[in-house]
Design a protein around this nucleic acid. Structure first.
Lengths: 188, 188
DNA sequence: GTCTATAAGATGATAGAC
DNA sequence: GTCTATCATCTTATAGAC
C-alpha cells in the first residue's frame, strides 16, 4: 500500500485526522508528519485547508455510496441490508475509534462555508434515501405504510447511526452499539 | 440579567461558544469580546482552557439534571416525560441552532484528558439512567420486559437525542426532529 | 479584579530555489 | 513536486502595574 500517490496519502491521512480530531483539531503539520513530507508540499495539492476538507468529503461520500451499492448487490433481505448498514458505522468505530466523517463535520458545521454545509447535508440525504428504500422493501411484504412515515423512520435510523457511535466511543463499550442496533431492528 | 458576575458571564459565554463552535473552535479572545473584558482577565478565573471547559461542563451537567428533576415533578405520565425530555434537546436547537454540549464534546473527545472524558460519559450515563427509569414506569403498566432490554432502549433513545439534532441542524429543517421523535414515541 | 505588555509557540499560507 | 525560508496572524498563557 506504499505505492499510493502523495495526493492519495494526503487525502487518506486528512480523512483519518478529521474523523479522529475534527477539522479544527488537526493541522497541516500533522498531515505532513504522517505522510512524510513538508507542510509546504501540501499546499501544492490543496492551496487552502477548506479545499482539502472538501476533497476529503467528496472521497468519503463516494466511497460510502459505493459501500451502499455493495450491500444492495450482496443482500436481498431488507433486514440484512439494514444490519449491513449499521455494520458500516460499526466498522468505522472498530477502525481506531473513529466516527463518521460527517458526524464530526456536522458538529463543526459553524466552521464551514455554505457550499461545504450543502455537501454534508447531501451525504445525510443520500443515507436517508437509501434507508427509506430499504424500509420500503421491508414494509411492502407487510402492512402498507404512509410514505411520510417511511421518511421519518429512515431519518430516525440515520440519527441512531450518527448518535450511537458518539455514546459508545465515550463509554468505551462498543458492544453497546450492537445492543442498540439489535433493539432498533427487533422492534421495527 | 446584567447583574451577573464576571465569572458567570464567562461560564455562560464559554458554554455558548462550545455548543456553537466546539472546544477547538473558540478562543479566549472570543470570550473576552462577548463578555466585555480582556483576555488576561479570563485567566484570573480559569488559568487554563481545560479548567474552563471543565467548569462549563459541570454547570451544564448540573443544570440538565435539574431540568430532568423538573420534568419528574411536572408529569406523571411516562410518555409525557419522554416528550419533555426530547423537548429539552429541541429547546437547545431553537436557541441559536446549538447542540448539546456533550454531543459536541463527545465528537471532540480526543482533545480531552481522561478526567474530562469521564465527566462527559457521566452525563450520558445519567441521561440513560433517567430514561431507563421512565421507560420502566411505562412498561410496568404493560407487558413485563427484561432489564437488559430497558437499558438498550434507553441508550437508543439517548442516541436519537444526540444524533437527530446533528442531522436537522445540517438540513436546516428543525421540524424533522419533531417527526423523528414522534415516530420513535409512537412505535415504542 | 482588571488592565497592558509580552512571551513562546502553533497556524495557514506564500515565495522562490532545486 | 518537494524543499527551505519566511510571513502575518492567532493561540494559550504569564508578569506585573494599577
Amino acid at each position: 500500500m506504499d505505492n499510493k500517490t502523495t495526493l492519495q496519502k494526503i487525502l487518506d491521512v486528512g480523512q483519518h485526522l478529521i474523523q479522529k480530531n475534527g477539522y479544527n483539531g488537526f493541522s497541516y503539520a500533522d498531515i505532513a508528519e504522517q505522510v512524510g513530507i513538508k507542510k509546504a508540499s501540501i499546499h501544492y495539492y490543496f492551496p487552502s485547508k477548506k479545499e482539502l476538507v472538501q476533497a476529503v468529503l467528496q472521497q468519503y461520500h463516494k466511497d460510502f455510496l459505493n459501500d451502499l451499492f455493495q450491500i444492495d448487490q450482496q443482500f436481498n433481505d431488507p433486514v440484512k441490508k439494514l444490519k449491513a448498514f449499521f455494520q458500516l458505522y460499526r466498522n468505522t468505530l472498530d477502525n481506531n475509534s473513529k466516527i463518521c466523517l460527517c458526524t464530526m463535520m456536522a458538529a463543526e458545521i459553524s466552521s464551514f462555508p455554505e457550499e461545504i454545509r450543502g455537501n454534508i447535508n447531501q451525504f445525510f440525504v443520500d443515507n436517508a434515501k437509501w434507508l427509506e428504500n430499504v424500509l420500503a422493501e421491508k414494509k411492502a411484504t407487510e402492512n402498507p405504510i404512509q410514505a411520510e412515515d417511511l421518511r421519518d423512520q429512515a431519518r430516525l435510523f440515520l440519527a441512531v447511526a450518527q448518535g450511537a457511535p458518539l455514546l459508545v466511543r465515550t463509554s468505551g463499550n462498543f458492544a453497546q452499539y450492537d445492543s442498540m442496533v439489535d433493539h432498533l431492528l427487533t422492534n421495527l
